[in-house]
């Protein structure tokens, strides 16, 4: 048997693909069938079951914002996941309120997904409502005007295109808003 895979190319190829397919199917096709929360949008109206709120589909404007976010590669430096780490919930929090941990049901409309792998700038999973549009306008024009020491590139071509700017801000303001995690509802517009 062992000798056969050495001398018979067809048996060899069959074995190589078979072994690959065991893990390949069990880790890609099976998980969403087993774990339904991957495909079901977050919704809860009962405060006794935790945070209330509802994940809404993207509006046309928000979709355009996501496309700009994708085009400019924002996701190479900004993750969108508050992980199950205490520090993450504090860092994503706002005005003394810790952010809830990100769950799969908050992301079901994301195409493409924007979880990210590298955090050169801060995580944006709960940035929605933290800063108003005027702050974003100044920040995109030159991030160092508002955050000295920042190494984020400037994006003048977005600020100078009002439609693109509004779309991008609309997208950013919805991030992390499916769950009503700030008791005072003090979200900026």
């Amino acid at each position: 048997m062992l000798n056969k895979v050495d001398i018979d190319a067809k048996v060899f190829a069959g074995a190589a693909v078979f072994l690959f397919f065991i893990g390949g199917t069990l880790t890609t096709i099976a998980p969403p069938l087993i774990d339904k929360s991957w495909g079901k949008p977050f919704e809860n109206s009962d405060p006794s079951k935790g945070l209330t709120g509802k994940l809404l589909p993207y509006t046309e404007q928000e979709k355009k914002g996501l496309a700009i976010y994708t085009r400019e590669g924002c996701w190479y430096c900004h993750t969108q996941q508050t992980r199950t780490l205490l520090a993450d919930t504090k860092r994503s929090g706002w005005r003394g309120v810790d952010a809830p941990v990100s769950t799969p049901d908050e992301f079901v409309y994301d195409q493409p997904h924007m979880f990210g792998t590298k955090r050169t700038g801060p995580d944006l999973s709960h940035v929605g409502g933290k800063y108003d549009a005027q702050w974003h306008r100044t920040h995109f024009r030159n991030p160092r005007d508002l955050v000295p020491g920042s190494i984020m590139p400037p994006f003048p071509w977005i600020v100078e295109n009002e439609e693109e700017f509004q779309a991008l801000v609309a997208y950013l303001q919805r991030l992390g808003r499916a769950k009503n995690w700030r008791p005072d509802n003090d979200y900026e517009k």
């Binding site: 880790t27 890609t28 991957w38 992301f107 994301d110 195409q111 493409p112």
Partner: peptide, 16 residues
């Protein structure tokens, strides 16, 4: 395959 998936499901295919 990633074109037909969204969110975590897409991310899982992407990382694979």
């Amino acid at each position: 395959a990633t074109m037909f998936a969204t969110g975590v499901n897409q991310a899982n295919l992407n990382w694979m």
